[in-house]
């Protein structure tokens, strides 16, 4: 067993374990954290495949941003586990059927007939000067530029739609206009007056 293979099995074991814990952990926050571990380990595996850009992007986007927001929401939820598990046995047959179907579908596609070493073969290692990021960028902006632009536009539409659907102006919320705040000058808020340090108390008003 070479060094690389040893690393692969190490990462693969962690990945499978983390994946299992995502669905078996009782606490949703723990499950989300195991998902973070799974993403990170998967990035390590991709790195072994010399797909450095994808590996780093996986960490950057999914671990660094998506899962942070995910945790943000999960931590705020007040989840009642008892209530969540209520209909478990009722749903089991249907869920089991779907699961078996998924496994069969995956086995049909991912079996060794299509993805075995004989068909796919191990990728040839690249020379030292090879830049995965540069190659990916070149292909993305030349050969696949239309597909890439199309995906970008679809994402943009989704962003705009998400904002448009959730945007509602509340009448009762207090709102400060930052421009007004910035425009405030000293003289609007503060008045400096000259007065004597001590004043004679006027008759009839009493002392301080």
């Amino acid at each position: 067993m070479t060094y690389t293979t040893a690393i692969f099995y190490f990462f693969a074991a962690i990945l499978v374990f983390a994946g299992l814990r995502v669905i078996t952990a009782r606490n949703p926050v723990h499950a989300a954290l195991y998902l973070v571990l799974a993403f990170f380990t998967a990035a390590g595996l991709w790195m072994l495949l010399e797909a450095e850009f994808l590996a780093i992007a996986l960490v950057l986007v999914y671990v660094g941003a998506v899962m942070v927001l995910f945790l943000f929401v999960v931590m705020m939820l007040d989840i009642n586990l008892e209530k969540l598990r209520e209909g478990f046995w009722d749903y089991l047959p249907l869920a089991g059927f779907v699961a078996v179907l998924l496994v069969i579908e995956m086995a049909l596609i991912l079996g060794s007939r299509h993805f075995g070493l004989a068909v796919m073969g191990a990728p040839t290692p690249h020379a030292a000067g090879y830049s995965n990021t540069k190659e990916l960028g070149r292909v993305l902006y030349t050969e696949y530029v239309y597909a890439f632009e199309l995906a970008a536009v679809i994402l943009l539409v989704a962003i705009v739609a998400a904002i448009a659907l959730t945007l509602r102006r509340r009448k009762d919320s207090k709102y400060l206009d930052p421009a007004e705040q910035v425009k405030v000058r000293r003289n609007d808020r503060l008045r400096i007056i000259k007065m004597q340090a001590t004043q004679k108390p006027e008759a009839g008003e009493g002392g301080a």
Binding site: I56, A57, N132, T133
Partner: peptide
């Protein structure tokens, strides 16, 4: 490493 900037951002 080649993608040092990306690595720093990800980490």
């Amino acid at each position: 490493i080649d993608a040092g900037l990306l690595y720093v951002m990800a980490i």
